[in-house]
Design a protein around this nucleic acid. Structure first.
Lengths: 197, 197
DNA sequence: CAATTAACATACAGTCTGCATGTAAATTGA
DNA sequence: TCAATTTACATGCAGACTGTATGTTAATTG
């Protein structure tokens, strides 16, 4: 006979504690910034102690990496949902762009993924994260468009990175109050400019 | 009668102390990062005490802002030198792009201007700095190209920001070891794609 | 040249990070 | 099944850092 709360497997404890920590950290990292959020504050919000944090994560940066990874995955899911493979290559790109800009309007996401992420983890690790999630479908879309002759032939790696950078900056500008219309227009112009002559 | 070293005007002292602090901070901020560089280390390298730092700058962030401002100005000067107004609009853009990528290969500049800068100062202040220096000539070049009908008509603000973002990402990728050829090819393709049909 | 202000140096308070140590619960294996 | 071991934490500590308050000397002002 096991009483419901006092008897929990280690795996269960680990999962919930990690989830609580990541959730609390996500909340604070998006409200404020990585630098302005202290580990005492995080563990208080998560209802554990700093001992638990440093048991499950190597350091504050590792916890941040977990938060970023989770958020990047969430953004990628939202984009995939909005651009099903039934669309043509070009339409999928446009739909994906819109979905990305919409996804990035969730408060704090731009800071987390576009400002603090690169600064804290470095561009190399951010690229690795992006390639595991968001950028992958963008690159596949571009390659597909190039294969159907609806796009100029260019190095996929570089093209993906530079278009993604443009999307990122657009998301930041829109959050800062710029005209979403203007930025969408330029983005589509950049993409359509890549059609073969 | 004044002995040469013991007699210095306040303006002179301020200027040299601020310059020493900015120079030492630049060195350390580019070698390591903003977060990994402490004020004790900065003032030791500058040959002053923390009292001097906090007398001349509101806080560590203000010193960082001064460093970023100076570095952005240096980059802008190098670009202006490489793309004289004698060139055609399109050639000036290409030359400016090359000059930018070259300027950003100075060690530590990408971290200072592209990673730590936005994270520490925020995109708004970084945009302000960029508009005081580098981006201004880029925007003027784009507007000029649009006026001579050699470029599609698009909102200049947004176009400038997105192309600059692509340049930035290219600089980061090249520093990380990616093929400069690939990225230059994509950048020129993006720009040439904006020619009117 | 007295009064004031600027340019620092020094000392301190508060906070944070990472680690070391301690403890209770869960898991293992004989 | 139960002793040995490992896991999942909690607590306390050491070192470092930031910003400020206070003190001191030199320059500037009226």
């Amino acid at each position: 006979m096991q009483q419901g709360s006092a008897r929990r497997s280690n795996r269960d404890r680990t999962e919930t504690t990690r989830a609580e920590l990541i959730s609390a950290a996500r909340e604070l990292f998006t409200e404020k910034s990585y630098a302005e959020t202290g580990t005492p504050e995080i563990v208080a919000a998560a209802g554990v102690t700093r001992g638990a944090l440093y048991h499950h994560f190597a350091d504050k940066q590792a916890l941040f990496a977990a938060v970023v990874e989770q958020e990047a995955a969430a953004v990628a899911r939202e984009i995939d949902r909005a651009s099903p493979p039934s669309l043509s290559a070009r339409d999928a790109l446009i739909a994906g762009s819109d979905a990305y800009l919409t996804a990035m309007r969730v408060p704090g996401r731009t800071r987390l993924l576009l400002l603090d992420g690169p600064a804290v983890l470095g561009r190399a690790e951010m690229d690795a994260i992006d390639n595991r999630h968001g950028n992958r479908s963008l690159r596949e879309g571009l390659v597909a468009a190039m294969r159907t002759q609806s796009m100029k032939r260019l190095p996929p790696e570089a093209l993906t990175a530079l278009l993604a950078a443009a999307f990122d900056r657009a998301a930041l500008a829109i959050e800062a109050g710029a005209s979403g219309e203007d930025y969408r227009a330029v983005l589509t112009a950049l993409i359509e400019g890549l059609s073969p002559a």
